[in-house]
Structures are given as C-alpha cells and as structure tokens.
Design a protein around this nucleic acid. Structure first.
Lengths: 182, 182
DNA sequence: GGGACCTCCTTGACAGTGTAAAGATAGCCC
DNA sequence: GGGCTATCTTTACACTGTCAAGGAGGTCCC
C-alpha cells in the first residue's frame, strides 16, 4: 500500500518511520522506504543525501514523537516536582521501549548528520522538556550538572533497564537523586 | 596482511576487532574480516552463526578489553571509595570514547545473542567491577538501586557526554550521587 | 587396509543493499 | 517558444550476508 498523497519527501519519512516501528532497527532500508512511498528506489537520493540523510530526517521526526511521549505522560502527572519529573522520565522510557527502532536511529545510528538544523531543533526541544522538569530542583535556575545527571541516568536506564528493572525500578533510581517530598 | 597463525576462529575475531577499531561501527564486515584473517569469505559461517554470531563473539572479547580499561584506571586511583569508583567510571568513559566501534557492537548492536555463555560471563565480569566499586557506599552489602543508578549514569553519560561534558564533567555528576569525602 | 565419518574450508551462486550516471517528464520564467 | 530547474525513472555497479555443493585432510572403527 502506498502512502496517501503526501509530498514525496514526507512520504519517504513516514514510510521510514513505519518500517522502523514494524521491523525494528533492521527494518529500514532505502529501497523499502521508497517502495512503500510508491516511488522508485532511487527517488530518495533527490531528497536526502543518501541513507545518512534519510536517517537524519527520520531522527528529526522521531525526536518530535519522543517529545510528545514525554509530554503525554506529563499531562496526567501529579503536581509535585518529583511526580512531574518522574512522569517525563517514564515517557522517555515508554518511548525507548515501544519505539525501539526509532530510538535506535535517534541515539545509536552512527551516520546521523548532527549539524542538521531540523535535527538540532527537535532534539533541543526534547532536551528542553527534561530541563524544565529539573528546574524546580535547583530553585528555578538551570543546573547543568543536575540536568546531565538526570538525562544520563534515564538514558542509560533506557538501555540497561530490561536487565535491572526488577531490582531497581526507575522511580527508586530517581528517588536516589532527588528529594521525593518536594 | 594476514593474521599471524592463530586458529581461524580467533583470527576472525581479532580481525573483526581491528576493523572496528580502525573503521568504527561501519568498518566491520563478514567478508572484510575473512579477508583480513586470510580465509575465504564463507569461512566465518563455520565458526559463527552468521554475522550475528561474529558480532556476539567480538562483543565478548570487547567486554574483556572493557573490563581491562576500567581496571587499568583503578590501579592508579586514590584510596577513597569515591576516587576508586570515579576511576572505574573514567575507565568506562575512556573505552567508550577511544573504542567507539567496539562500544557500539557491545551495546548498540541489535543482533547480539544475549544467551551466549561467553558473552554473559564477560559482561557480568565487567558489571562486577562496577558493583565492587559501589560496595563501600552501601556498607559492603550490594545495593541494586545504587548500582543501577551509577551504571545508568555512566552509561548514559558515555553516549551523551560529548554534548554536555563542558558544563557537567562526570566527576561532578558522580559527586551529586555519592558522598565525596568517604 | 579400507571405508565411513567428521571438521574445516573453498568455490560459486543468489537476492538484497546503497550509490551514481544518464535520461525522461513536467512546470515555470522570460 | 527556448532555456532551465526540480522531480523522478531506468540502468548499472560494487558490495553485502547467506546458502548449497563439494573437496582436502584427519580420525575412528572394523
């Protein structure tokens, strides 16, 4: 089935997202994405700089979905700063678990163009959600070390989680960093 | 240049390691490893279950090198528990930075066989170094949550480090988790 | 001794991949 | 209409992982 009638460029990105969601990191191929978008296998070359370019464009869209996942959890969170930051992190972990293919392209793809403006914007937006969640713990002023700690922890946990989540649920890990009462 | 005269299986692993070190995650190929080991392109099939099998065997060896990197730092560390754990983490970060290709296969390769006995042993050994470094902070008794936190943090930091290390060096991050005086 | 068997490896073939070059088609501007 | 560009197709190529068939060399068993 071909994509409805998006401009080809968007259709290719959408097809790539679908392939990653359905088939994991290995599911995405230039030619498969092209076929799914209903164009020839060489069409992507005109819209992206090769496979790395497609990866980058997909990562950019994926970061937007990633941000959504965090905000979705945040919307139903309690009022305390701890509950809010925990919700953000759980959105983070939701995404890493449920969209492993996208997560892989975003963070483990060796050929991303990290100079790409759209990618920079979208990843900064995602980071911004986490930053805001951290603010209440440093009196409203940004605290890079705290942000780095939380960001590193949740990111590392997303990758290691499956093997340690029984003995160390993330809420317990986060509680070790931050005061829960606040 | 072909490998000296190791058994073919080891020669293939060694060749794979070299390719990853020289060419990063993309540098390793079944056929290239075979050529470098001085055997035909199909020889690996007899020693490993396809490319995933070679990946797994390489990851196993890489975990051993990884453990070494941590122990090397630990050997020249100070006596305090904090200095020792920090040294271990810096060995961790050394390896992630200097052997990005190996690190990628170990942690970001989607096709590893995580049931492989050798891989299980070697990765557990690496985890053990970190565990031991954490022990003094929980009165000599294992504390899974603390271990999970430290492990997650350093692992996440290894991936994000390049973009945050200016404002948040890892020593500062670790200091936020653990008492420095001890 | 001879035959069966096994391990290790090679050769050859195949479908699938990313990429590049060349050309077709259409729209637009002057 | 003439030139021009953007978009896409076709064709081709080198490279990848995997599979099937087979061969050399040793071992074991009778």
């Amino acid at each position: 089935m071909t994509q409805s009638s998006l401009p080809t460029r968007d259709a290719l990105i959408e097809a790539g997202l679908a392939l990653l969601i359905e088939g994991g990191p290995e599911g995405l191929t230039l030619r498969r994405a092209a076929a799914r978008a209903g164009v020839s296998h060489a069409a992507p070359a005109h819209h992206f700089k090769g496979l790395p370019g497609l990866h980058t464009a997909i990562a950019s869209r994926a970061f937007a979905l990633f941000t959504e996942a965090m905000l979705r959890r945040l919307a139903t969170a309690g009022d305390s700063p701890f509950a809010r930051l925990l919700a953000i992190c759980e959105g983070y972990l939701d995404f890493a678990r449920d969209s492993a293919g996208l997560f892989h392209v975003m963070f483990a793809c060796p050929d991303l163009d990290d100079q790409d403006p759209a990618l920079i914007v979208e990843s900064a937006r995602a980071y911004g959600v986490l930053r805001e969640g951290c603010l209440p713990f440093s009196g409203g002023r940004p605290d890079p070390v705290l942000e780095g700690l939380v960001w590193s922890s949740v990111h590392g946990y997303a990758l290691l989680g499956p093997s340690i989540s029984d003995e160390a649920p993330f809420s317990a890990v986060l509680a070790r960093i931050l005061p829960q009462g606040a």
